[in-house]
């Protein structure tokens, strides 16, 4: 009796599971999401109103497991609230960058010629300008908010996925099934929608995880520079920036927890991305 043939999805799952770091990343992400989104349901704190009389309490003092910050906010509760902002912006901005980049790269690669040349020069020009610089400029022009940061980070981060997708599109457009569709009178956009993007979805998904990690780091940078979302909203970068003012005073609880969570989140997405690359890339699957 022969073993039943494994489906492509099963093979991908198996390859992903063989990557131990990817599993660690996935577990970390689940824990982080639970901490940020379910945590506040269990551990309820006021993250809107300041309590100056309770400022800078030590961990454990007056029922604050991780102490309070310089405005009297409970640090543990603030880590949860801040994590929501960081994760939401990271995920949404990563998704936005992936969608824009995928569409841009697919069109450029599929049509080729002058259109490709023009579209890719736009990408080259965009890559030449540091994303952080654009973010800082944008933050000084408009008051940063969650939607604004999602939009701005998404708009400065789509360039790399556009390049990746263009390469995929260039390779896929000469495949027989794409040629057949065009000969049968199908439109270019139809071919992109039905064949090019679905067949490059592995690359897109892998890149998306890295986009999320990059977006979280960008939010951190901008907030660290004091250009993040104004209070009472919080994010880990802003918490880190605020805590550093007290670094010489030994207020470790204002510095290490947000720093650690940033590292863990970025590592989690990066490890998951690694695992997904194993899962979607045939060469890695065969090697595995």
């Amino acid at each position: 009796m022969t073993a039943p043939a494994r489906s492509s999805a099963d093979e991908r799952l198996l390859a992903f599971r063989r990557n131990k770091l990817a599993l660690v990343g996935a577990a970390l992400l689940v824990l982080l999401v639970a901490f940020c989104f379910l945590g506040p349901l269990v551990y309820v704190t006021d993250q809107v109103h300041t309590v100056l009389e309770a400022a800078r309490l030590l961990p454990g003092e007056q029922g604050h497991p991780l102490g309070t910050d310089d405005l009297g906010y409970d640090v543990l509760g603030r880590l949860m609230a801040a994590g929501q902002t960081s994760l939401v912006i990271g995920l949404a901005a990563g998704a936005l960058a992936t969608v824009i980049g995928t569409a841009w790269g697919a069109v450029a690669g599929f049509y080729g010629g002058w259109l490709d040349a023009v579209m890719m020069r736009v990408v080259d020009a965009g890559i030449a300008i540091p994303g952080l610089f654009l973010l800082v400029v944008a933050a000084t022009l408009v008051t940063p908010s969650v939607p604004v940061l999602i939009l701005v980070i998404g708009l400065v981060s789509w360039l790399v996925p556009a390049r990746l997708m263009r390469a995929e599109s260039l390779a896929l457009r000469s495949r027989a099934y794409v040629e057949a569709m065009r000969l049968a009178g199908g439109t270019g956009l139809g071919a992109i929608r039905r064949h090019i993007v679905p067949n490059a979805i592995g690359t897109v998904i892998v890149n998306a995880t890295f986009q999320v990690a990059d977006a979280i780091l960008l939010v951190t940078y901008v907030s660290f520079l004091g250009l993040g979302i104004p209070p009472p909203a919080a994010n880990w970068g802003g918490m880190l920036s605020g805590g550093l003012a007290y670094s010489y005073d030994g207020y470790w609880w204002l510095i290490f927890p947000p720093g650690l969570l940033i590292v863990l989140t970025v590592c989690a997405f990066t490890f998951i991305g690694d695992g997904l690359r194993d899962a979607f890339d045939v060469r890695f699957r065969e090697r595995a």
Binding site: F210, A213, D214, L217, T220, L240, L244, S247, Y248, G250, W252, I255, F256, G259, L260, I262, V263, V266, C267, T270, G273, D274
Partner: peptide, 23 residues
């Protein structure tokens, strides 16, 4: 950003913070 460099950036950022905080 490459995978390793991304992790490196995050770890270095944290390490920098730790060093700053400990000094």
């Amino acid at each position: 950003m490459a995978v390793r460099s991304r992790v490196l950036v995050a770890v270095l950022a944290a390490a920098g913070i730790v060093l700053a905080a400990c000094s």
